[in-house]
Structure formats: structure tokens, C-alpha cells
């Protein structure tokens, strides 16, 4: 491949490179949840909108399975769905 995986960003929020993701997979972290906990992909402000599909593609290549057959817990999404400052939780707006 003509691209250097050190220079390819997978998660812009947490500055995770393609090399780090491949290294994690090589070290046995072979699901989205594990890689998320290890590298913080998907835990930044965008909540995985940039990186999740890219990581899943790497996992699909590793497992030699299509993305729909990968083990992904469906319940892993929890509120707050968007970055929200604490002060917003403290104040309830009455309309």
C-alpha cells in the first residue's frame, strides 16, 4: 500500500491513527467495544460518526467477515448522545 498508516487518522476527536488501530487488532483487541475502550475511538465529541465505520472496516478485513456479521453490542449507545456541558444538566428550561 502506498499509504503510511502512521499518517492516516481514524479518529479525529481522539487523534488515533490507522497504525494504532491495526496494532490493537494484532494484539487481540478484535471488537469495536474493546478498541473503543483501549484507544478511545468513538468517545470524543462526535461519538464515532467519523471513526466507527473505518474501524469496522478494519475489523471486517481482519475477521474476513462482512461488517453485519461482526460482534457489536447493539445497546452500547447511551445518553448523552451529543457533547453536553454539565451546566446544561443543572438547568432545566421551562417552556
Amino acid at each position: 500500500m502506498v499509504m503510511d498508516p502512521k499518517k492516516v487518522i481514524i479518529c479525529r476527536c481522539e487523534d488515533v491513527t490507522l497504525e494504532e488501530v491495526r496494532e490493537a487488532i494484532k494484539n487481540g483487541y478484535t471488537s469495536w467495544d474493546e478498541i473503543k475502550r483501549l484507544l478511545r475511538v468513538g468517545m470524543g465529541p462526535c461519538g464515532g460518526k467519523t471513526c466507527k465505520m473505518l474501524v469496522l472496516r478494519e475489523l471486517a478485513a481482519f475477521h474476513k467477515k462482512p461488517i453485519e456479521k461482526l460482534p457489536i453490542r447493539p445497546t452500547a449507545v447511551r445518553p448523552p448522545l451529543r457533547s453536553t456541558p454539565f451546566r446544561a444538566f443543572l438547568k432545566e428550561e421551562e417552556l
Binding site: 445518553p79 448523552p80 448522545l81 451529543r82 453536553t84 456541558p85 451546566r87 446544561a88 444538566f89 438547568k91 432545566e92 428550561e93 417552556l95
Partner: peptide
């Protein structure tokens, strides 16, 4: 923005300063 959706029909929308139930 919608930041929470719960099974009992409660939803939370928020700005950067406050939230609405």
C-alpha cells in the same frame, strides 16, 4: 439537540446551557 431517548417516552433536548424534558 436530542441528547437522550428513554423507553418510557421521555426525551431530553439540550443546548449548551440548559436542557428540556
Amino acid at each position: 439537540e436530542l441528547i437522550g431517548a428513554y423507553a418510557d417516552g421521555t426525551y431530553i433536548a439540550a443546548t449548551w446551557d440548559a436542557h428540556v424534558k
